[in-house]
Design a protein around this nucleic acid. Sequence first.
DNA 1: CTCCGGGTTT
DNA 2: AAACCCGGAG
Length: 352
Amino acid sequence: MKPDFISPATTMGFRQALLAHYDRAARDLPWRRDRDPYRILVSEFMLQQTRVETVVKYYDPWLERFPSLLALAEASEDEVLKAWEGLGYYRRARNLHQAARIIVESHSGSVPTDLEALRALPGVGEYTTGAVASIAFDVPTPAVDGNVRRVLARFFDEERPDPAWLRRVAREILSRDRPGDWNQALMELGATVCKPRSPRCDRCPVSRWCSAYALGTVDERPASPPRREIKKSVVTLAVFHCRGEVFLQRRPESGLLAGLWAFPEYGHEIVSSYAVHLGLSPMGKPTALPPVEHRFTHLHVRYVPTMLEVDRDERVGGVGERGRWVGLDGLEDLALPVAQRKVFESCLKHLK
DNA sequence: CTCCGGGTTT
DNA sequence: AAACCCGGAG
């Protein structure tokens, strides 16, 4: 049903019942303790592509490290990435950092209330604009995330909700009185009741108005598009160690794990030749470490690490600007992608 | 183990 | 359209 017309009775019932449910059942989440725009902004960046339970573990430490927009703006990128380590989608951390700097420089240090100014910040798209504006500033504007999309598709039995349909419907049913709570209530319903799989319609406060529930199509709304094929690849990593340190390289500024530290990848040559290529002197025989499997969105990588003790001539340098040696106990201070950390841990195990 | 979910940018 | 990350669910 494409609701050209949504009956006022449905709208009113939906709003009243869902807000009442939210008042009763809203989870006590750390970013709901107040309406500080900076804190809302941080939570929304972290919540992009990431579940609430994961974000909860990072949120308070982040605010302790960067208690204000200004503190964040003044931090170095390395500090920011370190605090983000493990959350994934590291571009979000850079975007948040940049956004803080822009807000300090161009908006007098206050998160802009204006929708267009918000939308112009790096890492802030349509959803985040609506979420921050409605939650922090009570602006009556929708915030359609994946949860809301699913809830609305089911409520109106829309098989393929496109962005224009979603915008229109979300705007029409939006509570004018409590837009921030309303948007959060919709998302919360999607996260806790109207879940992608095994939805709990028996516990749903709005099932009596839900079209898919009435029609028995809940499990098919919204229809999921066919998945793209996931490519598989094998990457050989060199784990050079020397006097209690290992060698890391900063990855290129674009592409996979852009700008993060990682063990160097080498191609089809043998690892000793690669060491020589970097100006290092192989000291013993290479040792194969167990492969580490890691899944990215579009890629399934099997990392095959080979460990090799080397000597390095301080006068030569050799390893280039993008390389650095890090003590085996000094990696805690470095932002390292999860797969690289796994490689590092198996290397540690081997060395002791 | 495999599958799946989720916003923004380019 | 494709790229980007991790962890929970089944």
